[in-house]
């Protein structure tokens, strides 16, 4: 098993922490391997933020994500910039209030969640990244829920722990409900929800 992921959005959405949680879950709590890289060039300034992960059950040799299996896009710019590199038939997870899709997503399995709205309901917009991590966990099933919960617990300061765990649960549940609605028929294949379909 080797999966390449990219998580991208704008500065302040916590995309690096989201990637960090997933990498930590994979390599520490799930007993596998994960390599996280970030873009540091001038293109990484001016509000855009992105991190890539290679997750595997074997040591990761090639460090970069070349054609991601999964793209998590939290902003329109992130979507536009990275949707083209996603593997044919790959997965696209989007913040559906912020990312209007176009025909470039047609060959992908698309899943949307209003992560920012859910985070606002929890009282802190800043936890939208962890809502997204919960959603990612439920939809992709790359990692076990226990491993990701443990990584969230490690990765956030104690006074925000409960808030972040709630954020994870809300995102996870949203994903579970979405899959239930989507009537899964084949393994690893899920119907695309109407509201974010192109």
């Amino acid at each position: 098993m080797l999966k390449e992921l990219r998580i991208a959005g704008f500065g302040g959405q916590g995309v690096i922490l989201a990637a960090h949680i997933i990498g930590r879950a994979a390599s520490i709590h799930e007993g596998g391997y994960a390599t996280m890289t970030q873009n540091y060039g001038p293109e990484a300034r001016g509000g855009a933020a992105s991190a890539a992960l290679v997750v595997s059950d074997q040591p990761v040799l090639y460090p970069y994500a070349v054609s991601p299996d999964i793209l998590v896009a939290l902003s329109q710019e992130a979507y536009s910039r990275f949707v083209g590199e996603v593997k044919e038939g790959g997965m696209l997870l989007v913040e559906e209030d912020l990312v209007p899709l176009d025909q470039k997503a047609q060959h992908l399995k698309v899943y949307g969640i209003p992560a920012t709205r859910i985070a606002e309901e929890l009282g802190k917009k800043m936890v939208l990244n962890v809502v997204m991590v919960g959603f990612f966990c439920a939809i992709t099933r790359v990692l076990s829920r226990e491993a990701v919960v443990a990584a969230v617990t490690d990765a956030v300061p104690e006074r925000f722990r409960q808030l972040n765990l709630s954020a994870f649960d809300r995102g996870f549940q949203y994903g579970v409900d979405l899959l239930a609605k989507g009537a899964v028929t084949e393994e690893n294949s899920v119907a695309v929800p109407q509201e974010s379909e192109v």
Binding site: H20, S27, M36, T37
Partner: peptide
């Protein structure tokens, strides 16, 4: 090198 310096792993 920049790659090992900036890459995050266990």
């Amino acid at each position: 090198d920049e790659c090992v310096g900036h890459m995050t792993e266990k």
